[in-house]
Nucleic acid binder design. Structure first.
Lengths: 228, 228
DNA sequence: CGATTGCTTGACCCCCATCAATCCTCGTGG
DNA sequence: CCACGAGGATTGATGGGGGTCAAGCAATCG
């Protein structure tokens, strides 16, 4: 079992502010898990009783709308924490987390995190900063959803995926999502997403080769996303 | 100048966890302001350098989309804090705050809050909980915006306004918003909002008498908002 | 009492949800 | 090794929701 004190991942999130002793305690009570693609980490309404620290892989965080459609509200990757919100509120999870590809995660039980939050002030400040950041992104997403057309949102999403998850050696988006997942990020029907993707392709803004998406004209996509 | 130690408002938010000495310090550095209807507390991009504690009145928190339309992301009322997010991130404000009616507010400078956050752990925990709560509401708003029709959102908004701000002595919504403001909450055109309001009126779900809105059939509005 | 601002209604049309059919791709078992 | 089935991707047709422009009306204010 790996030692948290020596783990590089913790440098990427609020856990970096834990002291050596705290990290050793975390090491002793954490559990490491491998999650297969498509597996559910937790569901809406479940009590998670801890937080997840993502070592590798990507996971989609979503919520079922009353209309019966899934809305993806976040994509979580290496270095991110997951489940912080529910832990702080001491409530059941409001969201569902599903692995997009194979993941390696550490699970840290609630009592340990709460203890550290109470004792270590730079840890709780660090936590606060992360939540403040999410809050900002979320506010911006609300505006995006409420005010922009589906086409604008798709353009924005493609640029975002490229920026957040990078490109592979061939220049394709390295994150691999189904059309349905993309549609569920944007908040539209799968067919509409497909139609718009092929429209973008026709205009040489992107190209599509066996399941890979290549961004060809970043600048014009940006303009579309901003409604210019 | 009022003393924070004796102020009832602080019981309504995270400030309730401050110690007596901390409150006295806050008292000495805070400023009280009266804000007239329509006045702007702060604008996108401004540095606020502190937080606002709302003593009375209501304020809309909004953001301009690139399309040039205003989206209201929150309504803040008596007892709420405002500006926490920017304070924590130490960034310029991402949002704009405008008084919906006459307001009385206290402004507490950043240095005092940061000091208390660093020294008083139950204060920072309390702060964390409030942010976690906002994060949850915000996630739900994203889903609402992305997945529900304008009609559903209007029904939901009307019920929400009734619940959050209550009814006046006659049973009308006590919060008073222009059609445009309602449209900017829902994320639609003013005309569409008006048309839907009159549709609701025809079906006796609401009634409209000189600028007042009365909810007549809560149950059916709820069903509409959930898409039943 | 004009004038500015907000409210309301009409007409038009495009965006996008929905249903349906076909095609493609890939893993599985015979 | 191939046939087959299942799930994802794609394209077509269709209709309604809602954005937009325009004009008229009500209300509020200096």
């Amino acid at each position: 079992m790996g030692k948290c004190e020596q783990c590089i991942i913790r440098q990427l999130n609020a856990l970096k502010t834990l002291t050596k002793e705290e990290l050793i305690r975390v090491s002793h009570c954490k559990t490491v898990k491998t999650i297969k693609k498509g597996e559910v980490l937790f569901n809406e309404g479940e009590y998670i009783n801890g937080i997840f620290c993502i070592k590798s892989g990507i996971c989609k965080v979503s919520k079922m709308s009353e209309n019966g459609r899934e809305q993806i509200v976040n994509l979580v990757k290496r270095g991110d924490l997951l489940g912080e919100r529910s832990l702080i509120s001491e409530e059941a999870a409001n969201l569902k987390a599903t692995a997009v590809n194979e993941m390696e995660i550490c699970f840290i039980p609630k009592h340990e995190i709460l203890r550290d939050l109470n004792e270590n002030n730079s840890f709780s400040m660090s936590f606060l900063k992360e939540m403040a950041m999410s809050l900002k992104t979320n506010n911006n997403t609300v505006v995006e959803m409420a005010q922009k057309s589906v086409k604008q949102r798709l353009a924005h999403t493609l640029l975002n995926l490229a920026e957040e998850f990078g490109l592979d050696e061939n220049g394709a988006l390295s994150i691999h999502l189904s059309r349905e997942d993309i549609a569920n990020i944007i908040g539209t029907a799968t067919e509409t997403t497909i139609r718009l993707l092929s429209e973008f392709k026709k205009k040489d803004l992107i190209s599509l080769k066996n399941k890979d998406i290549f961004i060809q004209n970043k600048e014009e996509l940006r303009q579309i996303s901003e409604g210019i």
